[in-house]
Design a protein around this nucleic acid. Structure first.
Lengths: 265, 265
DNA sequence: TGTGGTGTTCCGCAAATCGGAACGAGGTGG
DNA sequence: CCACCTCGTTCCGATTTGCGGAACACCACA
C-alpha cells in the first residue's frame, strides 16, 4: 500500500489510535461512535474492542453498554510515573516552592510540540489556573515549554521552529525568529517566563530539571494571575525557582560539577 | 489454531501483552528480552515496538537504547482516574479517616482475582505496609478484596471460588467453603477484616463503596501492624470505616434511600 | 580475533484481518 | 401499533498483512 517504510503494524496502530480516543475523558464511548471518529468499519472496531477488553486495557460500562479505559491502563500510568522518577524527586521540592512563593507550582515534560504536566501542587489562593495533571498545552507559549525547547538538541529545536506556531492570544510568539531569540535568552539566563501568551491574565515562570546525564528532561514552573504577579514580584521568584529545579536535578542524580550537559547547544 | 471463539485480534493481543510487561517497573526493556518473555520472534516484537513508539504509547530510552512506557500512557492513566470519579470523591474522606484513626487508608477496586489500589494516604506512623497505588494483591486474603468479592454478582463470586486460592501465610483462607462463609459474614456485617492472611504482622479493615446505581465498585480500607492494631482497638474503628465508605458513596451519587442495591445477593 | 550478546532488515508463504452486508434488539415518533 | 432509525453483533469470502527464520551490522568482552 504505502510507498516506503511501512515498518508499522496497521492493526496495532489502529488499536493505539482507538485507545487514545479515550483521552477525551468521556464516561464511555460506543462502537459506532469510535468507528466514525477513526474512519474504520464497525466490525473492525468491534474486534479491536473485544480484544482490548479481553486484555484488560478497556472495560465495558455495565449500565451504558459503552466502552471505557480499564484498570490495567491505570496501572501502566502509575508505572510511567515512577519510571520518570520525577514524582519522588519533585514532591518535596514542589511543596517547599509553594511555601516559599505561595503560588501553584507544577512539573511538565515535553511530548512533541506540547507540554504534559506530570505533577502539580495547588496554590493556597484557590484560583484555578491550569488544567489538572495529565493535560497538555502548546510548548511555544508557556514558560515550561520554552525551557524544554531551549534545551533540546539543535536539530529538534529547529525542526520545531519550522512548524506553524498557533496564536492563542495577541501576545503569543508566532515568529520563528522571535522564538529562536527568546529561547537563546532562556538558555543563557537559566529560566523562562510567559505572560499573557497562552491565555490573557496568566503569567508563569519556569526553570530546567536535569537527569543524571545532565539532559533537561523536565521543567518546574509557577503560575499566577498577572494581577498578583506583576513583572517585579514575578522575577523576584526566579532565583528560588532555579534553585528548586537544581534541587530536583540533584535528587535525580545530577552532579553540577561532573555534569557535562551532554546535549545543550 | 484455536477450537472456538477466536473473536480476538492476535496482533493486538500481543501488543497488549507486551505493554503489560512494563508493569514490572523496570527502567527499560530490550527487544530480545521482551521476545523471550512473550514467546514471540524478535522480528515480530521489533515491529510491535516500533509501532507502539510511533503512537507514543512507548518511547526509547536514549541512553540504554531500550524501550519504556511513553507519556501517552501516563495521560491515559490519568483519564482512568477521573473516569472512576473515585479520586475526587475519596480524597477528603481518606484524609478525614486518617485523622480519625491515625492509620494509613486506601481505596481499591477489583480486577479479576486481584485488588488494585487506586488511591492511598500514608499513616502518620511511617511504617510502610502496603505497596504504592497501582499495585495489585490477591483478593481472597485482603479485607478490601473480601468486601469486593462479597458484593459481586453471585455467578462471578462462585466462579472465583472454583479457582485455587493461593496460600500466602498459614492464616490465608484457602478452602472455598470457608471463604464463602466469610463472605456471607462480610455482606451481613457490612465490613471485612484480614489479619495475618496476606502477610504476617499486617491487619486491615475494609468497607464497601457504592456508585450511583448502588453497585459496590470499590472498597475503602485501613491497615496497620498487628502490634498496634489488636482485635479490640481494630474493631473499634469499624463504624468509622463504614461511615467513610458511605460518605464516598454519597459523593458518587448513591442515595441510601432510593438506592436499590441492584446486584447484591 | 573470536564469541555471544545486542538491535535491525529482508523475504516468501500462509494465515489473519478487512469491510460490506445482514441480523436482532431498542427506542422514538408518527 | 407499525415504520423507521441507530445501536451492537455476526457472518463471509477475497487478499492484504503479519509471522518466523535467517542473515546482517554492531558492540563488549575475552
Amino acid at each position: 500500500m504505502g510507498d516506503v517504510g511501512d515498518a508499522v503494524l496497521s492493526t496495532v496502530s489502529n488499536a493505539a489510535r482507538l485507545l487514545k480516543e479515550f483521552r477525551s475523558r468521556e464516561a464511555s464511548i460506543g462502537v459506532s461512535e469510535l468507528a466514525r471518529r477513526l474512519g474504520l468499519g464497525k466490525s473492525g472496531v468491534h474486534r479491536l474492542l473485544t480484544t482490548l477488553v479481553a486484555e484488560g486495557l478497556l472495560e465495558r460500562d455495565p449500565h451504558t453498554g459503552g466502552y471505557r479505559l480499564g484498570i490495567v491502563m491505570f496501572e501502566l500510568g502509575e508505572a510511567v510515573k515512577v519510571h520518570l522518577d520525577l514524582h519522588a524527586a519533585a514532591g518535596p521540592v514542589l511543596a517547599h516552592l509553594r511555601e516559599q512563593t505561595g503560588e501553584s507550582s507544577q512539573v511538565g515534560v515535553l511530548d512533541g510540540v506540547e507540554v504534559v504536566y506530570v505533577d502539580r501542587l495547588e496554590s493556597a489562593h484557590s484560583l484555578r489556573l491550569f488544567t489538572e495533571t495529565g493535560r497538555r498545552v502548546p510548548a511555544h507559549c508557556t514558560s515550561s515549554g520554552k525551557v524544554l525547547l531551549a534545551h533540546q538538541p539543535e536539530p529538534e529545536r529547529e525542526a520545531f521552529l519550522t512548524r506553524p506556531l498557533p496564536r492563542l492570544t495577541p501576545h503569543t510568539i508566532v515568529e520563528p525568529d522571535a522564538l529562536r531569540d527568546e529561547l537563546t535568552t532562556v538558555r543563557a539566563r537559566g529560566w523562562a517566563e510567559a505572560v499573557d501568551e497562552r491565555e490573557i491574565g496568566v503569567a508563569s515562570l519556569a526553570a530546567p530539571i536535569r537527569d543524571v546525564h545532565g539532559d533537561v528532561v523536565a521543567a518546574i514552573s509557577i503560575g499566577a494571575p498577572v494581577a498578583r504577579f506583576g513583572a517585579v514580584p514575578r522575577r523576584r521568584h526566579a532565583p528560588a525557582l532555579v534553585e528548586a529545579g537544581e534541587a530536583i536535578s540533584r535528587r535525580l542524580g545530577w552532579n553540577p560539577e561532573s555534569g557535562v550537559r551532554s546535549r545543550d547547544a
